[in-house]
Amino acid sequence: MVDYAIASENLTKIYRGKGFSVTAVDHVNLKIKRGEFYGLLGPNGAGKTTFTKMLATLLIPDEGEAWVDGYSILKEPVEVRKRIGWMMGETGGRALYWRLSGYDNLVFFGMLQNVPKDIAEKRIRVLLKFLELEDAADKLVLEYSTGMRIKLMLIRALLHNPDILILDEPTLGLDVESAIKVRNFLRRLTDELGKTILFTSHNMYEVEQLCDRIAIINKGKIIFEGTPREIREKVEELKVVEIDVISSDSEINDILRKLEAASVVKKILSYERTKNYYKIRVTVEDHYVAIPEIARILKDNKVESISRSLPTLEEAFLKIAGVKIEETSRRIWRRGGHG
C-alpha cells in the first residue's frame, strides 16, 4: 500500500440510528497512484463524502482500512492529516469562522497545518490574488458570497502545500468562470507539481474533463472504475432524444402513450413540466431514424423541438451499472454528510 497515494481495502461505514442502519460506504477498494487526478462520481447520498471523511480521519470505519501516502488512517491519523489538504464543498457546511476575516481564517488554519506565519502570508497573498479575493481579505467571512467562501476553503486546503488533495465537490457553487479557472489550476497542480487529487463530484462532464481515472459510486458501492474514455464509450451507446412539446396536463398522457407505442422509441426515460412545455426524454436505437419518425407521430401536437441530447448522469448510471440510482433519503444526508 506504500506505493499508492491513497489506497483503501474493504473500507466500510455503517450509520446506525434508532430503528435504521445504512451502509454508506460498502467494502470499497480503491487504489490511487501518486500524481493521479482521480474522480469519485456519484449522486447525492452515494457515500462520496463519507468516504473522503474517513480518509481525512474524521470518521472511523466499521470495517476495512485505508492508507494515505502509506500511512494508516487508523493507526497514524496525525501523519495522514499532515499530508492531506481536505476541503469540504458548499454542501459541507461552513467550515470557516464566519466572524473572522478571510485573511485571519487562513493564517489561523495555516498555523494548525504547521505553516509559519511568514510563509503562510506569502502563499495567501498569491492565492487570494489568483482567485480574485484580495479585496475581500479583510472582510468577515459572514459577508462573503457562497462562491467566495468556497474559494477561501480551497486556499485553506492548499496552504500547507500538501502532496495529496481531497476535494469534496470543490466547484459546486462557483460561478462558471471561476469553476473553469479552478479546474485548470487543479489540473496543473497534478501535471506540474505531481500532486495527487481525489476529487468528488456529481457532474459527469467535469470529472470526465479533468480526471485520469474515475470511479462511480452508488449506494456506497463502487459500480464502475476506469478512464474517462471507457466511460464515454459506454455512454455513447446511449442515444437520447429530447422532445419539447406544449401540452396541457391532460394531453400529456396521450402523447406519452403515442411515444410508447412507437417502434423507434426504446424507452421513455423521463418527462417533466417546465415553464411553457413538457420535456420528454427517450432512448432510441438510431437517432437519425428516430427524430423524423417522432416528429411524424407527434405532428398533431405542438412540438417545440426534437433534438439529440447528452445523457444525464442518472441515465449514464442506468446504462453503466444496469441499476437505477437512488438518491438516499434526507435523513441519511443529515446523519452522514452529503455524498
Binding site: 471523511k53 481525512a56 480521519t57 474524521l58 496525525v78 501523519e79 492529516r81 499532515k82 492531506i84 481536505w86 469540504m88 459541507g92 457546511g93 461552513r94 467550515a95 470557516l96 469562522y97 464566519w98 466572524r99 488554519f109 498555523m111 494548525l112 497545518q113 504547521n114 485553506r156
Partner: peptide, 17 residues
Amino acid sequence: FYGTLESVLSTPTDFVI
C-alpha cells in the same frame, strides 16, 4: 455551531491546542 469542528480536526494539530 460554526461548522469548523471537522475543519480543525482534519489538521495535524491536536484539538487540545
